[in-house]
Design a protein around this nucleic acid. Structure first.
Lengths: 172, 172
DNA sequence: GAGCGCATGTAAAGGGTTACATGATTCT
DNA sequence: AGAATCATGTAACCCTTTACATGCGCTC
């Protein structure tokens, strides 16, 4: 249930509408913490009910802008320093790898080629994010830089793994 | 919805009961694809309904053993070579890192120390899995070895990242 | 005025966890 | 006899996605 705090964190950067937040989740967070608009709108209503955020202005196309409140900021801080970190991951590609012994060497090589290419591309996207964050500085950009670095390292590691797995193939 | 195929894959190794499968998900797959027993029992019933598995024997403590059927094996193969891979991850620690700019340098250092230690330990656990897989060979052990290698590389990458993040701190 | 993108929502269904409940066997 | 472990299941709830629905404002 980190979406709640993800929204709070984004709103700590400045006021935004549900639509804005959905777009930011799409391109900035899509690979790390996916969230679609129905969930975001629902969570915003609950956050407002809890007093963590407040509707600020009503814009042109019935656009509702939210801003974070002081109790919201406090809750964000509490989450970051006190709440236990959820270290669970869910990686379908690794689950699949356990069953590589059931497919033929040709099918496996094919699969690993496509996987490596995919991870490599994703790593490249994070390299772009990193470069963009390097442009401007200020605390927020530096935090974004740290996140982007994680993306680069993670996806490069997976790409390297897929390449390595071709060397040591568990043929059927 | 890969739990279905995860169970199918484990059953491709040999017959097992829901209890067995829950235990294997706990220690072998816990960090990669968590699944609790209620979900597993439910999915087994659905898999049996689809004809992908069949109840084999009724053991001592009303233990129900399932085995994979030919259509189940075909479905597993179809999934592995045809079904699009789900590359999404959901990493709370990376989501948190985006908001590091809201906490103090001391709080951040503390946090990153604990994170690095955690990832390092997890990597060590996967090194054990890898060593164990190296002991015996055969196709299944080699596939397990490949999965373990992914764990090692992934968690080492995250540990390295946490260490690196301390060097380049995005203080508030 | 037609069509597109902005903007917000609801409903239904699926996936997953937690808590509860129970029975059978083995060990001490 | 009592405790621990094996073994299966149900009910309720939460999180998330997909599909459906609608209205406003801008551009051509």
């Amino acid at each position: 249930m980190s979406l709640r705090h993800g929204l709070l964190g984004l709103l700590a950067e400045g006021p935004a509408s549900g639509y804005d937040l959905a777009r930011r989740f799409e391109d900035l967070l899509g690979a790390i913490w996916p969230a679609k608009h129905p969930q975001i709108y629902g969570e915003l209503i609950r956050l407002a009910g809890a007093g963590h955020i407040a509707a600020a202005a009503e814009g042109p196309r019935r656009r509702k802008e939210y801003r974070i409140t002081d109790t919201g900021r406090a809750e964000l801080h509490r989450w970051l320093v006190e709440a236990p970190v959820d270290h669970s991951v869910r990686l379908e590609p690794l689950l699949r790898s356990l069953f590589f012994w059931t497919i033929s060497p040709e099918e496996l090589t094919d699969h690993l080629d496509r996987e490596a290419a995919h991870w490599r591309e994703t790593a490249a996207r994070y390299r772009c994010h990193a470069a963009a964050a390097d442009q401007d500085d200020g605390p927020r950009a530096r935090a974004a830089r740290v996140t982007a670095e994680a993306g680069v390292r993670l996806y490069e590691a997976l790409a390297d793994w897929a390449e390595w797995a071709k060397q040591a193939p568990p043929g059927r």
